[in-house]
Design a protein around this nucleic acid. Structure first.
Lengths: 239, 239
DNA sequence: TAGTGGTCTAGACCACAAT
DNA sequence: TTGTGGTCTAGACCACTAG
């Protein structure tokens, strides 16, 4: 384990234990550095992690303040870091998938190619899956992925975790994603598979995902009923 | 301007100009360091900024890759960094406010005190504002803020930008926020002020905001019609 | 003025990827 | 094996806050 990660874990523990209570000041960076026998830069790095996790706040010239319980998270919410895919977030024991469409084609809306920065002739998998949590309809996913990057994607993989297949078998890792979150009206598929009524509000997450090598690998829209899932974010004012 | 910020701006310019095109590798950190006459750590810091902005991706052992156009942003969307308040985001010339409620009270739902980590007897401003963009109803905001932190909040301030008042007059700066984004059904107020029909989907953003001194200063819910605004996020896989 | 966090350095050493 | 980015250091100096 890296030194700064160890420092993060220790300070986190102290905050949880009440040793550093909300609104109090942490020891100064110099003291922490000598206590943990690391350099001041390493302490700063550790505190940066805790800052971006919303646990503390640093103020130049003043000190480092412990934040109070500002949590908004509820069960089944997507965490701020929602990377792992649904299977990883909720535990594979609870997540199952029903395949509604699984084809490869280059006949898709042009916007998809634009978002993926690919030529309009590139073959894409066109996948619609209903994800169920403990057997209950939860999220309806419409995903496009370049065939070239995973030529032998099979129905059994799609029925399980594409993320796990990419990571474990193809050694492809996720690098990052842009997401766009909005509310939407229910469509036919929502009514048919999610159990929406004609007027049930839907939460839609549109995303472009790229790999750790910087290649776009996915464009997708995920939809869920308004009262089954929310999206959580922490934002820090650096400036 | 700090050195790493200068480096960020220069590299950004080169990406925009096509000097470092999408999918290409940047010069190695050592080269950039000698070109800009800064240390390697400073280059790394600059590249970290660009990484978290979704413009490049670094891979240990390989190099630094320029990402392609993965933008999802559309006009009137909230940016990934949505800190400044609506007035700042859209420009004050376009944003006006209609006050629907402006009182101080300690008779508010207990959840509000929980989220603010305050005693249930603390007086709070209870503010409902309709924010208009170019005269059109845009966002309906319900905000609670501790009276103690801004005892002389006036109706004219509330009609304009509370953010600007706190920053310029009270020298209170925002430190960070936790947000929870979800879809919701239209309520009476949405119908009355936003122009929602009884079944129009609503996008709701719930947030707790704290100051740069770590004190919770706001709990609010902002609602807009589903087709007028979305929320954008970039996520990076560090791990 | 004293005290805090922030920036920056020059260089040692480590971890990971391609060959 | 070579080359890339990552971690870490010890210390100089800067910027901001409080009294």
């Amino acid at each position: 384990m890296k030194k700064y990660q160890y420092v993060v874990s220790q300070i986190q523990k102290r905050i949880e234990n009440g040793l550093y209570p909300p609104q109090s000041l942490l020891p100064k960076q110099e003291e922490l550095a000598s206590e943990f026998s690391v350099s001041k830069m390493t302490i700063k790095r550790a505190l940066d992690v805790l800052t971006h996790d919303g646990q503390i706040f640093k103020k130049s010239g003043l000190g480092t303040i412990v934040l109070g319980g500002t949590d908004l998270l509820e069960s089944r919410d997507a965490p701020a870091n929602a990377f792992d895919g649904l299977t990883m977030q909720q535990g594979s024991a609870h997540v199952t998938s029903k395949i509604i469409r699984f084809t490869s084609t280059s006949n898709v809306p042009e916007i998809v190619y634009q978002r993926l920065s690919l030529a309009t002739t590139t073959p894409l998998y066109d996948i619609i899956r209903l994800r169920l949590l403990d057997g209950q309809p939860f999220i309806l996913e419409h995903t496009y992925m370049p065939v070239e990057m995973m030529p032998s994607l099979s129905e059994s993989v799609v029925k399980g975790s594409i993320y796990r297949y990419l990571h474990e078998d193809l050694k492809i890792d996720f690098g990052g994603a842009r997401r766009r979150i909005q509310a939407a009206e229910a469509m036919d598929l929502d009514v048919k598979y999610l159990g929406a009524k004609i007027n049930t509000p839907i939460l839609e997450i549109e995303q472009v995902v790229w790999t750790s090598l910087g290649k776009n690998i996915e464009y997708s829209k995920s939809r869920n009923l308004y009262d089954t899932r929310a999206y959580n974010i922490i934002e820090i004012n650096d400036g």
